[in-house]
Every structure is written in C-alpha cells, then in structure tokens.
Amino acid sequence: MSNGAAVAHDAHAHHPALAHHFESLDAQKEASVLGMWLFLVTEILFFGGALTAYMIYRTWYPDAFAVASSEIAILPGAINTAVLILSSLTMALAVHAAQTGERGKILVFIAITMVLGAAFLGIKAYEYHEKYVEGHIPGLGLPFRFEEEYYRPAQIFFSIYFVLTGLHALHMIIGLGIMTWMLVLTRKGVITPEYYAPIEISGLYWHFVDIVWIFLFPLLYLIGRHVHHVG
C-alpha cells in the first residue's frame, strides 16, 4: 500500500468522498483520525471524573467498598469482559477487511461486532435486574438492603456502580448506532481501500469503550474477593 500512496493523490483527486477544503484523501483521513482521538481524549477525562469520585470514596470507605463489591456476581461480568474483547477483535478484523477492500468481510465482521455488543447489553440488563431483586439499587425510592455496618457507604458504591456501568452501556448503545451506520455506508459501496476512515474511526470508538470496561471489571467486581467470599 505504502508505495501506492503517492500515486493515489492524483488518481483520486476527484474522489467523491474528498471534501473541497482538503488536498488529498490522505490529509482528510489524518484529520479525521486526529479528530476522533481528540474526542477520545474528552472521553478519557469524562470517565476519569467519575473514576476520581470512585477513588476518593474507595479510600474513604475501603471496607464498605470491598464488601459491596463482593455482592456482585463475578461470572456475568467476566463473560461480558470476554464478549467485549472478542468484539474488539472482530472490530479490528472489520477495519482490516476495509483496508484490503473485502466488502463482504467488512459486513460480516461489523455484524458480529454488533451481535456481541447486543449480547453485552443483554447480560448487563440481566445484572441490573439481579441488583433490583437483591435490593441493591440505591435510589429511585426502592428499598436498599445491606448489612447495617456498611449501609450508607454501600449506597455510594452502588451509586457509582450504576453511574459508571450505565454510562458505559450508553456508550455501547451509541456504538451500535454507529455500527449500523457503517453497515449502510459499506453496503452503499462508499468504503474502499482508499477511503475507509469512517470504519477506522468508528473502530477507535469501539475499542475505547472496550478499554473502559477493562478497567471497570476489576474496579467494580473484584476489589474485595480475597477477603469476602460472598458472591
């Protein structure tokens, strides 16, 4: 590919996807990739703010956090971690297929990515329902059930749990929307080995959401297991 890059400048000067204010598709793609990375910078700080709150309260209430965390079943969380990592692989394979111009494969890999994303959300919904049954929802006027000693700070833990996993799930839903759009673009034949920036930057977003979960899993599910074998 690299030796063809220079040639591509002239051959595709009138590429339909080339916006009027860019010199070349290469320059346009570099701009989109940088733009997406800067967006991910904002995402890092966004989740980072909530993680700061988590960190402060965890240093304040280490025992309550450990006990409350042990109340969450590990298995669904672990399965979801695996599901997301697998979806990141299929996303990477979709970008690869876009680079090599295999349109059928792009469609298949994006579809698998979406199925995995939906599976993640399904398991998440099941977990939320479990929390509801167990009385671990710290609000909405629902009864909160927890051992007396940690009754108050456990509510902080579960509040942060729902905010972080809820925001993560929202990002997954947005991701599914983006992937649907990518399916449409690919089917319309817009995506070519010269112009696959949309797939590439959508992939960046998807991988980022995966990374958030990579941190949430140990921080929310696993912090008290070695002392409290409850779940």
């Binding site: 710290p138 006027g141 108050r152 902080i156 942060i160």
Partner: peptide, 12 residues
C-alpha cells in the same frame, strides 16, 4: 434517581 454521590446523608 436519588443516588448518593455527594450527599452527606449517606457519607458523601
């Protein structure tokens, strides 16, 4: 939602 995040009533 009535979550306890900054609320001193639950130790926030």
């Amino acid at each position: 939602f009535g979550f306890g995040l900054f609320n001193p009533a639950v130790g926030g």
